[in-house]
Nucleic acid binder design. Structure first.
Lengths: 175, 175
DNA sequence: TTATTCCCTAGTAAGTCAATAGCAAAAGTG
DNA sequence: CACTTTTGCTATTGACTTACTAGGGAATAA
């Protein structure tokens, strides 16, 4: 098992295509889930960056940058000075995972760095674009369908739990 | 519109999280679709690397490396020397896009470079792993469900065409 | 005023990505 | 047997990204 936020024994297999959840997206989601927990007690309660960082075992200064990006996207609010901190600025049921990933890493899908609808294919590969569009649509379907509240309460939408119930969903594919 | 294989005006928005189709996966799929077209005439016909490269407007030497990886994965066969070239080594209906992406870029999904099932989350983010597993399952569902033949004949599975029919599937989300 | 806490810019080491160069090895042709 | 063609393989490159860290500036409360 990989320790959370411990950058020592990680990146065993440096290479990965398909979908990659970056450290920013992962840390950002974890920070937001901490803020959701506080929000459910008092929606205006402020939590310090360092408190989030230690709770989630994430590098503090790196997390600060992430929280700033989330504030600039209107997901989080912040206050400076003593007794300052961060809080959610929107209802947890209103913030989707897609919102978070887009705020931190940009567009959900890219083909060679371009939007899927912007690439064109000659001859035999004529219909390849449809495939990448479908991949993006699948990502959107999942990530736009799950809110922070869903994750915090472990109440995922039914079509997502169906995905999780698929045989082998929790195992890696044979290499 | 971005020209196929032209690396000049691309990479406008360098950053992207979520799913990224690499040049290798994109070029590899295009090369394979050329081979499928030949396969349908004669399953043993050999096509030269340079012919594929010019047909798909892809850098030759880069494509060579891709085709070699595909051969090492058993998807493609090759023969050296004059009158040599490449051909499909499996039936087009038997090769999925997931096979291609895995052969060229490794695992379909990663969280900070690790397999989704290998990361663990403390406290408030306890259930985040399920989300990433679901994302991977969604990717698998799409990419393992489409074969080279499906793309070549433009006959995608019904659940994929349903994804494409979703409103806004072809437009980017408002930034 | 002073301690606290977020805000912001810069920088950096390591790594990846996309591609190129060059030569070795095999296979067919004359 | 040369000789040409075509793939096999390794190494290298430059641009870029990722995951951080350093250090100071600005706001806020006691």
């Amino acid at each position: 098992m990989v320790q959370p936020g411990n950058a020592a024994n990680e990146r065993l297999s440096g290479k990965n295509g398909g979908v990659h959840i970056s450290a920013k997206a992962d840390y950002g989601m974890r920070a937001l889930l901490e803020l959701v927990a506080a929000y459910r007690i008092d929606p205006l309660q402020l939590i310090k960056g360092e408190a989030i960082a230690t709770a989630q075992q994430v590098p503090v200064k790196f997390l600060e940058g992430i929280l700033r990006q989330l504030r600039q996207s209107g997901i989080v609010a912040s206050q400076r000075g003593a007794e300052g901190g961060y809080r959610l600025d929107r209802d947890p049921s209103d913030v989707t995972i897609a919102d978070v990933v887009r705020a931190l890493d940009g567009p959900l899908a890219a083909v060679r760095g371009n939007r899927p609808e912007d690439v064109e294919y000659p001859g035999a590969s004529e219909h390849l674009r449809e495939v990448w569009i479908a991949v993006r649509a699948a990502m959107r379907h999942v990530l736009e369908g799950i809110s922070l509240e869903d994750v915090a309460l472990n109440k995922l939408p039914s079509d997502v739990t169906e995905l999780l119930a698929e045989p082998g969903a929790w195992q890696r594919r044979k290499p």
